[in-house]
């Protein structure tokens, strides 16, 4: 049996369904992210694991023990909150030692553990500071140390980086992953930021409107999204109207131009199928094994490392193509006639 399992979990608040039919098995030492827009039920699910909410139906087991209705203060599950939630009346050391103190751990042991934790987050010299004397990023690291000090069975992180500046966010992201791997602790991470989820996790659970949309490794989620929601929420996606679909020949037309695709079409697709292509799959010009489209450049958007070209391929269909801003790039101008191509295996039907 898995280390942490959520079986048939659902949660309703009055008439609103926050989470429905949630099933997940998490292995020991695994890093799993819940990814989705706000209101998708990811935080509610996390709070049920922490014990702040009781599921309406279903069972949560941790290490072969049913913890569904266990009070939060008996679960031994560490949690890091979005707004740090450090106790303002305590120093950094007191915050980190709090969980051990309420467990009546001997003071000497607490001090030793606090020092270990401070070393882990590289804030040794901050032990006697108060939270208000520290930056957001430092506070959040203390919050992480506080949650880890009690040697929790599972570490839960509720959008821990969303209150921080972009640069610190990336730094702290790396640090969270480092600490998680050092300790080998089972971790559930809630976020609405796909980059965080993809870069940190062993597995990602994409959620929308209380449902699980897809579970998989970051690679699977990004490259083989199974639903339209996942495909458009994770990464950029061109969704283009098609005609003359021939499933056996695996061909169709796009704005009158022929297109082949390779992916299996055995998955259920909608009544009005559309062709999905990631913008980064496009090239300017032709190539072996590629679909070729002819069109006119409508806009050029400069994004730094990437230049997003919007090409009108006729019938009012616009495609977005992301081109790497390399020196060798021969950039077209607005209004130019261009040829763009993409691999046959890089597109699929939704």
């Amino acid at each position: 049996m898995s280390f942490l399992t959520l079986a048939n979990i659902s949660k309703t608040f009055g008439a609103t369904v926050a989470v429905a039919d949630f099933n997940l098995n998490i292995e020991k030492g695994e890093f799993v992210s819940f990814l989705g827009p706000s209101g998708c039920g990811k935080t509610t699910t996390l709070r049920m694991i922490a014990g702040f909410e009781m599921p309406s139906t279903g069972i949560i087991t941790l290490d072969d023990m049913d913890i569904t209705y266990q009070p939060p203060n008996q679960r031994n599950v560490g949690m890091v909150f979005q707004a740090y939630a450090l106790f303002p009346n305590m120093t950094v050391a007191q915050n980190i030692g709090f969980g051990l103190q309420v467990r009546k751990t001997p003071p000497a042991e607490i001090q030793k553990r606090v020092e270990e934790m401070l070393a882990l987050i590289h804030l040794e010299e901050f032990a006697s500071r108060y939270p208000y004397q520290m930056s957001g990023g430092q506070q959040q690291r203390v919050a992480l140390a506080r949650a880890l000090a009690i040697q929790p069975r599972v570490l839960l992180l509720d959008e821990p980086l969303s209150a921080l500046d972009a640069k610190i966010r990336v730094e702290l992201r790396l640090e969270i992953r480092r600490i998680q791997q050092t300790l080998g602790i089972t971790t559930v991470y809630v976020t609405h930021d796909q980059e965080e989820a993809l870069s940190l996790s062993d597995r990602v659970v994409v959620m929308s409107r209380g449902h699980m949309e897809q579970v998989g490794t970051p690679y699977e989620i990004y490259n083989y999204p199974t639903t339209e929601f996942v495909a458009s929420f994770v990464g950029q996606l061109n969704l283009l109207p098609i005609a003359n679909l021939d499933r056996t020949a695996r061909s169709c037309t796009l704005a009158g131009q022929p297109v082949h695709f390779e992916h299996s079409t055995d998955r259920p697709i909608s009544d009005t199928p559309r062709l999905a292509i990631r913008p980064e799959e496009f090239w300017l010009g032709d190539g072996q094994g590629r679909n070729l489209l002819r069109g006119r450049v409508e806009t050029l958007i400069f994004l730094g490392a990437i230049i997003r070209v919007r090409v009108d391929i006729g019938d009012g269909v616009l495609i977005s193509a992301d081109l790497f801003n390399a020196r060798s790039l021969n950039l077209p101008r607005v209004g130019d006639e261009v040829l763009v191509s993409f691999p046959v295996h890089a597109c699929w039907l939704i």
Binding site: G51, P72, N73, Q74, A83, A85, F87, F98, G99, R146
Partner: peptide
């Protein structure tokens, strides 16, 4: 803040 209470409970406090 509600989080203070939750953080305390989470850390094992009654």
């Amino acid at each position: 803040k509600r989080e203070w209470r939750e953080a305390a409970e989470n850390l094992g406090a009654s």
